[in-house]
C-alpha cells in the first residue's frame, strides 16, 4: 500500500506539533554523551548528526521493566489485580532507524510464538513508527549483510528520507501511517516521478555473504573458535540490552509492605546466572558456551524455529562492547572457517 509523498523541511516540525496534540511523541534526543529515545514536544529537541541512538527502540514494545500484574497480601490470603491493557499508551516514535524498525518483526516472532503475548502485541499495535532513513553510517553498521538497507521500509509505518534540500521523501507504508497523514494532510505534498531515494542513503558495504550462514554457524558449534571468545568476553549484558531484538527476560516479584507487583525484566544469555540450576549445575558453563548461544540463537535457532533472524545488523553490540566482541567479525570468521 506504499504511497509516496513529500514533506518539506518546514512541514516536518509542524507535523510533530500536530501529532503531539493527541499522542505522546518520542524521538532520539541528545543528553550529554548519550543519545536515547525520549519524549519530545517539538522537533527542535531531536538530536541531529549521529549514526544511531545508543539504545534501540525495543523498549517501546519490550520495556526494561514490564509490570505483569500486582498483588496485595492480607490476612485472608492474596488478592491479585490483573493489568489493564487499555492503559498502554498510543505513541508515535519519530526518527527510528530502519534497522530498529526491522527488528520489530523479529521481536514479534518471539512474542507471538504460541502463546501470543498480549502485552507485547498491544504495545506494538499502539506504537506508530515514523522511520528516518540513514544518510550516514559507520564501520559497525552491517544491515546490508543481513538483507536490510539504510532505506529499508520494513517495520516502519512511514519512512522519511532526508534529501539534499533538507526536505523529506515520505513513504506511507501502513494504515497506521495513513492515520498520521490524515492528522495533517496538507503538510504532505503529492509528488510526480521518481524521487531517487537511493541517492540520499548512506553506503553500507556488505561485510559477509549470508547465503549459507545458518549451516555454517551450525557447523561451528563444536569447534575451538569459541575458546578465545570464552577468554575475552567478560560476561556483562551490554550487548543484549542495547540489541534491538534480544528479548530474553527474567521474572521477579517486587514487594513493598503488603503490596507488590510481578515484573518482567531484561535478562541476558551472557550472564553466568542465566542458566544456572539451583543444584549448582550450569548447562552453559563457560563464557564461550554463552557467547555461542548468543550467536546460535540469532543466526540458527531463531531462523529454524521462528523463520526470522535475531539480528538486523545495527552494530550496537559491537560498538558498545567493552572488550570489542565484534559480531560481524565473528560471523565472517565462522563463514570463512566453515
Amino acid at each position: 500500500m506504499s504511497k509516496i509523498k513529500k514533506l518539506s523541511k518546514e512541514s516536518f516540525p509542524l507535523l510533530i506539533k500536530k501529532i503531539s496534540e493527541t499522542q505522546h511523541v518520542y524521538g532520539p534526543v541528545s543528553q550529554g554523551k548519550r543519545i536515547s529515545y525520549q519524549r519530545i514536544s517539538s522537533a527542535d529537541e531531536l538530536a541531529s548528526d549521529f549514526i544511531i541512538p545508543d539504545m534501540s527502540a525495543k523498549s517501546f514494545v519490550f520495556p526494561k521493566i514490564e509490570k505483569l500484574f500486582s498483588y496485595t497480601k492480607n490476612k485472608d490470603g492474596v488478592e491479585v489485580q490483573d493489568i489493564n491493557l487499555d492503559n498502554i499508551p498510543h505513541r508515535v516514535v519519530v526518527g527510528i532507524r530502519p534497522c530498529d524498525a526491522a527488528g520489530m518483526e523479529s521481536l514479534k516472532a518471539i512474542f507471538s510464538w504460541d502463546p501470543s503475548d498480549p502485552i507485547f502485541e498491544t504495545r506494538l499495535k499502539r506504537t506508530t513508527f515514523i522511520g528516518l532513513a540513514c544518510n550516514q553510517a559507520d564501520d559497525y553498521c552491517f544491515c546490508t549483510s543481513l538483507g536490510g538497507s539504510p532505506g529499508d521500509t520494513k517495520g516502519s509505518d512511514i519512512l522519511l528520507t532526508k534529501t539534499d534540500t533538507g526536505d523529506y521523501i515520505a513513504e506511507i507504508l501502513t494504515s497506521k501511517g495513513e492515520k498520521i497523514v490524515t492528522l495533517a494532510p496538507d503538510l504532505f505534498q503529492d509528488v510526480e516521478g521518481d524521487l531517487q531515494k537511493e541517492k540520499f542513503l548512506a553506503n553500507v558495504p556488505k561485510r559477509f555473504d549470508n547465503s549459507d550462514l545458518q549451516n555454517k554457524i551450525n557447523a561451528a558449534f563444536n569447534t575451538d573458535v569459541f575458546d578465545e571468545y570464552a577468554m575475552r568476553c567478560m560476561g556483562c549484558s551490554a550487548c543484549a540490552f542495547v540489541c534491538p531484538i534480544c528479548a530474553c527476560f527474567d521474572i521477579q516479584d517486587e514487594t513493598k509492605g503488603s503490596k507488590g507487583q510481578r515484573v518482567r525484566l531484561w535478562d541476558s544469555c551472557g550472564a553466568k546466572l542465566f542458566t544456572l540450576h539451583t543444584s549448582g549445575h550450569n548447562p552453559r558453563e563457560t563464557q564461550g558456551a554463552r557467547w555461542r548461544q548468543r550467536l546460535m540463537h540469532k543466526f540458527s535457532y531463531m531462523p529454524e524455529r521462528l523463520e526470522v533472524r535475531g539480528c538486523v545488523g545495527c552494530g550496537r553490540c559491537s560498538r558498545r562492547c567493552p572488550v570489542d566482541m565484534n559480531i560481524a567479525e565473528s560471523l565472517n570468521q565462522l563463514i570463512i572457517d566453515n
Partner: peptide, 12 residues
C-alpha cells in the same frame, strides 16, 4: 535513569 543494569561496570 539511564542505567540498564547490564553490570558491564562490575564485569570490567
Amino acid at each position: 535513569e539511564s542505567c540498564i543494569k547490564c553490570y558491564a561496570c562490575r564485569q570490567a
